[in-house]
Amino acid sequence: MLPPAATILPDRAASSSPADTRPRLERIAAASADGGVPVVRVLGRWGAGDLGDRQGVRALAAQLAAHEPAQAWAWDLTGIAWLDHVGAQWLWDHWGRAWPAQLQVHARERALLERVARLTVPAPPEQPWRLVDQVDHLGVLVLHGVDHARHLLQLVGQLALDLGRLARAPRRGPWRDVSGHLYHMGATALPITALVGFLIGVVLAYLMSQQLRQFGAESFIVNILGISLIRELGPMLAAILVAGRSGSAITAQIGVMRVTEELDAMRVMGIPHGFRLVLPRALALALAMPLISVWTTLAALAGGMLAADLAMNISPAYFVQALPAAVKIGNLGLAVAKSVVFGVLIALIGCHWGLRVKPNTQSLGEGTTASVVTSITMVILVDALFAVAFKNVGM
């Protein structure tokens, strides 16, 4: 509502537009206003088209800044030529989203200003920084993390129970789903993993050749490439690619089932989510990841072998002959074991985020993004744990 000191005049009669239509302010001496309060007259056209001129807007902003605080002035809008919602929003914001103490306005402009005041959402007051609020926010994040960890632990326990059920009655297992996921998550991932592995091997070989040549140790490139690719980079590269490719697909598939209410229909029909959704994907990735890891490692070794031949004149025959002596078989066993763990983790994390998707598209996108980020982070973390726990294996 308008302030008590507001003067509302009837709408002005139609008249010819003044020559100067620029939106501007004009200050009147304090003696001419009631109560000795200085008056600011609003003149010109205050419309969207008139406020679109950049130079005019700058000049108007300077004039408005010269009349702050707005509550200390009496405002006269009776001389304004045109006012629309844009101009009314300018004035309302300059007044601090509160009515000035004294205001003279016509009925039409009054209605516009009241509509803007009613529809403008007041800015929330700025809250001071408090340690208690930060501790509370940290506690909320910790509780969210505990909730996710609890749900993942439930998935792991349910997976163990489902594996026992499958061992008791293997003929009733979801083998068709497992074979389908093996194809989509394993066979179709071979081209991209081979390409990335080959290029990584080429890059590593070229970079190492520059350093080894300085010390005359070109032959040690077989040891460096063999250990780094077979033990660490091969399995981790394959897991990261599968996490971005298949982990997001798992979350998206289950999330769409949540959006289309298929998960609710399965629950109504008594079909367990763990046995029909989580178990086939976990089994498929547990079987596919070691094969993809070995495939990626072989492609990376092929790229490194080619780059070593071109950059250091180390023949492929010597590379293949020296590789078994440089890399013990324990490294390959460790890489395969890590890959199985990576596959199960990626499948469980993808299913976890898919089952927690809410029935809307925004939650589906957020869940897919969180699934990929969480899977890649867990792969790197578990790889670091394996490196520390089995540091003496294969060395």
Rank of each mutant, 00 (worst) to 15 (best):
P10L: 11
P10A: 12
P10Y: 12
P10M: 10
P10F: 14
P10H: 12
D11I: 15
D11G: 08
R12L: 03
A13I: 06
A14V: 15
A14M: 14
S15R: 11
S15K: 10
S16V: 08
S16P: 10
P18N: 04
A19F: 03
A19N: 04
A19S: 09
A19V: 11
D20M: 01
D20E: 08
T21L: 07
T21V: 08
R22K: 07
P23D: 05
P23L: 01
R24L: 08
L25H: 01
L25K: 02
E26K: 11
R27N: 04
R27L: 12
I28E: 12
I28Q: 11
I28T: 07
A29E: 12
A30G: 13
A31N: 13
S32G: 15
A33S: 08
A33I: 01
A33P: 04
D34V: 01
D34L: 01
D34W: 00
G35N: 00
G35L: 04
G35I: 01
G36I: 15
G36Y: 11
G36E: 15
G36N: 14
P38M: 09
V39W: 07
V39Q: 12
V39D: 10
V40T: 08
R41K: 15
R41V: 13
R41W: 08
V42G: 02
V42L: 05
L43M: 13
G44D: 01
G44S: 05
G44N: 00
G44A: 05
G44C: 02
R45H: 12
R45I: 08
R45L: 08
W46R: 00
W46N: 00
G47S: 13
G47R: 09
G47Q: 07
G47P: 06
A48M: 11
G49F: 07
G52W: 06
G52N: 11
D53K: 05
D53P: 10
R54M: 11
Q55L: 12
G56P: 04
G56M: 07
R58G: 13
A59G: 15
A59H: 15
A59R: 10
L60S: 06
A61R: 05
A62D: 10
A62E: 11
A62M: 14
A62K: 14
A62F: 13
Q63C: 04
Q63D: 06
L64I: 08
A65H: 03
A65C: 05
A65W: 04
A65M: 02
A66H: 02
H67Q: 09
E68Y: 04
A70N: 00
Q71Y: 06
W73Y: 06
W73P: 01
A74K: 04
W75N: 02
W75C: 03
D76C: 07
D76H: 02
D76I: 03
L77E: 03
T78F: 07
T78M: 05
G79R: 08
G79F: 06
A81P: 04
A81K: 01
A81V: 09
W82D: 14
D84E: 14
D84C: 13
D84L: 13
H85K: 10
H85E: 14
H85Q: 14
V86G: 03
V86W: 03
V86L: 06
V86M: 09
G87E: 00
G87N: 02
G87D: 06
G87L: 07
Q89R: 15
Q89I: 13
Q89Y: 14
Q89C: 14
W90I: 12
W90Y: 15
L91T: 06
W92I: 10
W92F: 14
